[in-house]
Lab assay of single mutants.
Amino acid sequence: GLPPGWRKIHDAAGTYYWHVPSGSTQWQRPTW
């Protein structure tokens, strides 16, 4: 699974990851 606080988001551009507490997003899968 993903580290705490991360969500996987799907949209028209593809899949990305959202860090809910900080509001940051990234294309790379977050690592622990």
Results as ranks from 00 to 15, higher is better:
P30D: 02
G14E: 07
H10T: 15
H10G: 08
H10L: 09
G1K: 12
W32Y: 10
Y16A: 04
H10R: 11
A12F: 08
P4M: 03
P21L: 09
P4G: 05
P3K: 02
G23F: 03
D11A: 12
G14Y: 08
T25K: 15
R29Q: 12
T15N: 09
V20I: 11
H10V: 14
T31Q: 11
S22M: 02
P21H: 04
R7M: 13
P3F: 04
T25M: 14
W32F: 13
H19F: 05
R29M: 11
W18V: 15
T25G: 10
Y16S: 03
P21S: 08
Y16M: 07
G5P: 05
L2V: 04
L2N: 01
P30S: 02
H19T: 01
W32T: 10
G5F: 03
S22L: 03
W6G: 03
H19W: 04
I9H: 06
L2W: 04
S22G: 02
Q26W: 04
P21R: 06
Y16H: 06
G23R: 02
G23M: 05
G1M: 12
T25V: 14
P21T: 09
W6Q: 02
W18P: 05
P21Y: 08
Y17P: 03
Q28V: 10
P4Y: 03
A13E: 12
D11M: 09
Y17F: 07
Y16T: 02
G5E: 05
Y16E: 06
R29G: 06
G1H: 13
W18M: 14
R29I: 14
T15G: 08
A13G: 11
T25Q: 08
P21A: 10
W6Y: 01
R7Q: 10
G23K: 05
H19N: 02
G1F: 11
S24T: 15
R29W: 09
W6P: 00
W18K: 12
G1P: 13
A12D: 12
V20F: 09
W18Y: 15
Y17L: 01
S22H: 03
Y17K: 00
A12M: 09
P21F: 07
H19M: 03
W6R: 00
Q26Y: 04
R29D: 09
H19I: 04
W6T: 01
P21E: 11
R7I: 15
P3Y: 02
A12G: 12
W18E: 15
A13D: 13
I9Q: 05
Y16D: 04
P3Q: 02
H10K: 12
L2H: 01
R7P: 02
P3I: 01
G5L: 02
G23S: 04
G5N: 05
R7T: 13
I9P: 00
A12Y: 08
R7E: 10
W18T: 11
G1Y: 11
G5I: 00
Q28Y: 08
A13F: 14
I9F: 05
I9T: 03
V20P: 05
Q26I: 05
H10Q: 12
P21N: 07
P21W: 07
P30Y: 01
P4L: 04
L2E: 15
T25P: 04
R29Y: 13
S24Y: 12
A12R: 10
P21D: 11
H19K: 02
T31Y: 09
G5W: 06
Y17E: 01
P4A: 05
W6L: 00
K8Y: 08
A12Q: 09
L2G: 00
D11E: 06
I9S: 03
P3S: 01
P3M: 03
S22R: 01
A13M: 13
Q28S: 08
P4W: 03
Q28T: 12
A12V: 10
W18S: 08
R7A: 09
G5R: 00
G1E: 13
P3E: 02
Q28W: 13
I9D: 02
P30R: 00
P4S: 05
Y17A: 00
A12S: 12
G5K: 00
W27A: 14
Q26K: 05
T15I: 13
P4F: 04
P4R: 04
W27N: 12
Q28L: 09
Y16P: 02
D11V: 11
G23I: 01
P30E: 03
T15A: 11
A13P: 03
W18N: 07
G23Y: 03
G1N: 12
Q28D: 14
Y17D: 00
